[in-house]
Amino acid sequence: MHRPVSDVLRNGGVVVYIAPHATVYEAIERMAFHNVGSILVLKNNRELVGIFTERDLLRRVVLKGLDARTTPISEVMTHDVIVVSSDTPRYEVERIMREQHIRHIPVADEERLLGVVSLRDILRVENEERKFEIDKLKEYVMEKPYPTYPG
């Protein structure tokens, strides 16, 4: 269970991002197209300056009555982004998410963004591993006993 968070990354290494001057609507369109719950905000296509999530959309846009078509993403994104490295253990990433009350964390090595991992991604992989272990235990328990030979 000490496997790295890089094992959980989806989308084949595609980093879904948008520029800070883009609108919330443009961000939502991109998120929907890629079927993701968050989008990174990159300055000059390189520098991470924020993250925007479905929760941000609800709390910072919808509840405040802002127009998604005219509101810049930079006004409603989370600026202080927690980033983990690809070799961070999954259990550590899950702990950070629970303590910080966040569901998405960017994963990076050195200066290169590798993607975003969600709490759902981590829990999905953990459930798959548990199911595999249970299936193997069932096979072992249900295995026919070795034949006994007379004598």
Rank of each mutant, 00 (worst) to 15 (best):
M1D: 12
P4E: 07
P4S: 13
V5E: 02
V5F: 03
S6T: 08
S6L: 11
D7M: 13
V8S: 06
L9D: 07
L9R: 03
R10S: 10
R10I: 04
N11C: 01
N11Y: 01
N11E: 04
G12T: 02
G12F: 01
G12H: 06
G13W: 05
V14S: 04
V15C: 02
V16G: 02
I18F: 01
P20H: 06
P20R: 01
P20E: 06
H21I: 09
H21A: 09
T23P: 07
T23A: 05
I28R: 05
R30P: 00
R30W: 04
M31F: 12
A32T: 14
A32Q: 11
F33W: 12
H34K: 12
N35V: 02
V36S: 01
V36N: 05
S38T: 03
S38N: 08
L40M: 15
V41T: 06
V41F: 06
V41S: 03
K43L: 15
N44I: 00
N45W: 04
N45C: 04
E47Q: 14
L48C: 07
V49N: 04
V49P: 05
V49E: 09
I51T: 07
I51D: 08
F52S: 00
E54S: 06
L58E: 04
R60G: 03
V61G: 06
V61M: 04
V62D: 05
L63V: 12
L63M: 11
L63T: 11
K64M: 10
G65E: 07
A68Q: 05
A68V: 01
T70D: 00
T71V: 00
I73N: 05
S74Y: 08
E75P: 02
M77C: 11
T78N: 12
V81P: 09
V81L: 00
V83T: 06
V84Y: 01
V84W: 02
S86P: 06
D87Y: 10
T88Q: 11
T88S: 10
R90I: 15
Y91N: 13
Y91K: 12
V93S: 01
E94I: 14
I96R: 09
I96Q: 01
R98P: 00
E99F: 07
H101L: 08
I102E: 02
R103G: 11
H104G: 08
I105H: 01
P106Y: 02
V107Y: 03
D109N: 11
E110H: 14
E111R: 14
E111M: 10
G115P: 00
G115F: 03
S118P: 05
L119R: 09
R120K: 13
D121P: 06
D121S: 09
L123E: 14
R124C: 09
R124F: 14
V125F: 08
V125N: 00
E128S: 11
E128T: 06
E129C: 04
E129V: 15
R130W: 05
K131D: 13
K131V: 14
F132L: 15
F132K: 15
K136W: 02
L137P: 08
L137W: 07
K138C: 01
K138A: 14
E139R: 14
Y140F: 09
Y140I: 13
Y140K: 13
V141N: 05
M142V: 03
E143G: 09
K144P: 00
P145R: 10
Y146N: 10
P147I: 13
T148V: 15
T148Y: 10
P150R: 13
G151C: 03
